[in-house]
Design a protein around this nucleic acid. Sequence first.
DNA 1: CCATAGATGAGACTTAGTCTCATGTAGGTT
DNA 2: AACCTACATGAGACTAAGTCTCATCTATGG
Lengths: 143, 143
Amino acid sequence: MAQQLLQALDRAGVRLTGPRRELAHLIAQRAGHFTAADLLADAERRQLGIGRATIFRLLELLAEQNLVERVDLPDGRHAYVPCEPSHHHHLVCISCGGSSEVDDCGIDAVAAEAARRSGFEIQSHRLELFGRCPGCQSGTSPQ
Amino acid sequence: MAQQLLQALDRAGVRLTGPRRELAHLIAQRAGHFTAADLLADAERRQLGIGRATIFRLLELLAEQNLVERVDLPDGRHAYVPCEPSHHHHLVCISCGGSSEVDDCGIDAVAAEAARRSGFEIQSHRLELFGRCPGCQSGTSPQ
DNA sequence: CCATAGATGAGACTTAGTCTCATGTAGGTT
DNA sequence: AACCTACATGAGACTAAGTCTCATCTATGG
């Protein structure tokens, strides 16, 4: 998965630097969503000497390429989820932090209906679903 | 509208203090969504002497009572929208900042379908629609 | 191997939000 | 009407998230 990220960055015409390679691996190792602070902590723990700015810059870059999507957690924090570069939405597990993707399966219709009722001209939408993933439902980790 | 907010606060059993009354009016005067910083600026402009903490405390209180809902703007900032205390979603105008409410009109079905496909047990969801309101579409204020 | 545009780390800076604490006051009680 | 006290407040220290600048470094095309 780190390779996918790096290939996509290469395709986007940016340089494949050391810090970027290392961060790609750190992201690949995180199962679900992660915050900028998580990445920063990972990098510090491994003493990679990567600056805070570099991390934010890479996340911005990845978000531009739709390789990562920004998600707003219910508590107001910002997290990122690595994902396929197509339009879709995320299911975020509030217990383990894992996430999975769902395609639109009907939201466009909902948006169209809302547009019709309100007269708005809808340009984008964001749907986030929060709950417990199958693994966390089977009693292992309450919360 | 300020009255509605104040009545609801009274019903919730909290004190109707001077700062709260003043903030209720400031909120009522803002057409659409606003950020904590907006309110703070309003209060300072009028020299009301209201502290930053008081504003955040009131917003938290209003959010708890569902009198105001927290919305994450596409640029990552947090805003608040005064609203009816029932479950619904917001249409936010990216041009003038106005907003209106839409009821679920089918999102529950989408969520149920996503749950079925993924095995997640969904607890909450958040849908935000961004676009241009009828007023802003009629050429007056581009972008 | 070189030149250079693009990337980096350090750290100052800005902004959002939280916390503490001494003081003030709403509103029920008498 | 005056009193009491739990709740609310403002000030400002504090923390965390994110941005910016700038001198240095390096990936990569030639």
